[in-house]
Design a protein around this nucleic acid. Sequence first.
DNA 1: GTACGTGTTGACGCAGCGTCAACCTCAACA
DNA 2: TGTTGAGGTTGACGCTGCGTCAACACGTAC
Lengths: 249, 249
Amino acid sequence: MSWSIAEVARASGVTSRTLRHYDAIGLLPPAWVAGNGWRHYEQEQLLRLQQILLLRNLGLCLQAVAEILERDSRDGTVVVLRRHRRRLIEEQERLRRQLRTIDRTIDEMQEGGNMTADTMFDGFEHNPYEAEARQRWGDEAVDASYERMKGWTPADADKARAGYGRVHDGLAELLADGVAADDGRVQELVDLHYEVTGLFWTPNAEAYRGLGQMYVDDERFTRNIGQGNDALVAYLREAMSVYADTRLR
Amino acid sequence: MSWSIAEVARASGVTSRTLRHYDAIGLLPPAWVAGNGWRHYEQEQLLRLQQILLLRNLGLCLQAVAEILERDSRDGTVVVLRRHRRRLIEEQERLRRQLRTIDRTIDEMQEGGNMTADTMFDGFEHNPYEAEARQRWGDEAVDASYERMKGWTPADADKARAGYGRVHDGLAELLADGVAADDGRVQELVDLHYEVTGLFWTPNAEAYRGLGQMYVDDERFTRNIGQGNDALVAYLREAMSVYADTRLR
DNA sequence: GTACGTGTTGACGCAGCGTCAACCTCAACA
DNA sequence: TGTTGAGGTTGACGCTGCGTCAACACGTAC
């Protein structure tokens, strides 16, 4: 008893194209091929097809399916399945992160935000270039920062979005008024700056001074923060340095 | 102030190939292209790139990213994000199912099972061709069956794996001994058969009779159950019919 | 004879780039 | 001035798992 490719396709729910593909890559050759080129499948091939479809339903790629079916050893199979299991778990974690972020984003947009850099990236403006951040500070620091962001309440997200902007705006006014960097009003704003920064990581005195210096040294930060007003960035660095000296450690 | 493609690539962490791709599909054209063909990016493009990367991190395809950036309307964006959110949730559900199945499979294999049809497909031998099952019984029935399988305890899975096999083996003996289909020993086995079937769905008297008839009518079931012994399948149908008459409804 | 259903191989298409290859530009150094 | 090296450019193929033609052969029924 043998089945044609269309019969197998109908019974199994895959298309004949798929069966031809499985033949082409050697995953499921037909039992025999007639003189006219027609493929014929026997029960053995149907059983193999069932195994293939089940493994594919587990999300394994055809390569992995082939590995399992070729080896045909319990231990080897379990190894492949465990490897795949780890991948599934990572995938799940990735999905969880994406869902959390997308929910937050939808919330923020419905509160009247829009897609300009202002609302969508305020929380990230001090961390806009992740790849370089990883180079500069190391993977652990960046990952830790993301970990921290995962625990944000909506109020935290709000603070992160608006916080730096308020600091910069306030500082610009005080600078224009000629207020000294160690003035209480300036230091109050820096306190907010430190608090917002704390949403991402917790710098000690030295690190906080270094952050201020980096704002000055790295033109990308200078541009983002000062918006053309380089004196403002220098002012912020100075104020952060004072803050570090007097309030941290 | 403008940046070359390599500078943008370094700062953003994507490759220059990616940037060229984004240019090619019109997602992120450079600010201007010099006479020698060199791409130059300005701050505006960097901001757009940030938005692209953020949306891509949410798992959106570039098509969807483009939609969002082109429309630039809050409502449209939220619609796209919500649509994507639904996809993410479906994906999550799929992963959950795959993980449950793979865990069960690993467990079973470590208990000494192997990858032959016996152990891996016993639970499915009465439902091997899902697509056709959906045609024959409808989506709701098949989905309900899967729902039921999700609630299986390990003991249930065990029963599903081994149950039908025990029924068929026992029936083959009784048939060989010439025991009548309405004999108590046969009906006891059918009771087990009904119980195992109940793991997938709950047939009433008529449906159960129909199931027995289908075993006879459909050669694939006949083959799986009788293993060449067609009389056994007829015997089972007869016994199921008696069981339906006397024990169901 | 011909019409229709089913089979075949071959080829392109899809998403999002990675990875050559072959060639051009620009600044620096011998 | 020639060479070198680090940039840039445009193709073009490769990957996954098939879907979807196209062009052609085969088999059976009318």
